[in-house]
Amino acid sequence: MNRYTHTTDPAGRPGALSQACRTVRRVSRRTACKLAVGALLATSLSGNATLSLADEGSYPSKPIRVIVPFKPGGRTDTVARLLGEKIQEKGWLSQPMVILNADGGAGANAVNQMRRGDADGHTAVHWHHQLLISIAMQLGDFTLDDFKSVGYTGGGSPVWAVREDSPYNTLQDLIDALKAEPRSLVEAVGIGTIPHFVGAMLANEAGFETRYVTASSGADRLRLLLGGNADISLFAASEFIGQGEGLKALVYFGRERLPDLPDVPTASELGLDVSWANPNWWLVPADTPDDVVAQLAAALEKAIADPEIVEYFNNNTLEAYWMDGESAMADAKKTLAALKPVADSIK
């Protein structure tokens, strides 16, 4: 397809190609063949060369493949790309990071991609807590033991929102209404995704119940809520702020209030012990040597402290922070334990 990205590369059209071949033949059959074979050899040789360097132990010896289990353009993808570029620009690692999108199968596709690569630090995954949900729901044949945690590079928390013309102005109004009339309101969620789990954790904590309507993406949730087909839904804080009008946030799931939304209380302020922070989590295969992980972590830690990156995070209502691999894994295990009962309840 995209041979056309660069106009100098005419490789694709059969017509153009045979034309090119004919021209080449006219010039010199032999030279052309030699050139082509030479180019081929050079490519495979350089591949071998980088491989042999890897044996010498200078990490990284070839581009690092970062697998993102989503389609391009989402937050996880964007953050991976931004950090990768920053690291390359500043030369914190001697080789570039190459982002690979492997969407689908609740992450199983990405894990399979990871298993195809070597556990030598040249294969990494950039994910978030959807990983924990996949594990809690037992989708795919992977557990946390398949991974070694490199660390969190920041993250963000969502809000629970209703339509602007909704009669409920606080979370308490909403809970009271739902307690008076159980299942009277519709919540737009993707069953078995983060909005569903966060909503269910809140519902369990506060003791209410909603009806659901399936919405497979943030856009779907927005569409259903604005159109009056749902009453409540979860949004990333940046999605909520970008929408500007039409929505009203009742509660923020972060541990502290978000500076951009000073009037939206956190759940813990309201006496409900529910919080959800979705980190940008860097992982490598479990067998990756520790010294290599440390080098990767060091580069990421520098990148997340870079002013430009911090600015991007702030603009998108994300928090830029660094949490090292072990603490991140401990945090994830705690979250996973909290998710398990919810997962069991919807089995």
Partner: peptide, 24 residues
């Protein structure tokens, strides 16, 4: 409204957010 109609448009939205533009 910032609601993508297709996969292709979801990616267009991604392109906007990368430039720090929130569609909507």
């Amino acid at each position: 409204m910032g609601i993508p109609g297709s996969v292709t448009e979801a990616i267009l939205i991604g392109a906007l957010t990368i430039h720090s533009l929130q569609p909507g």
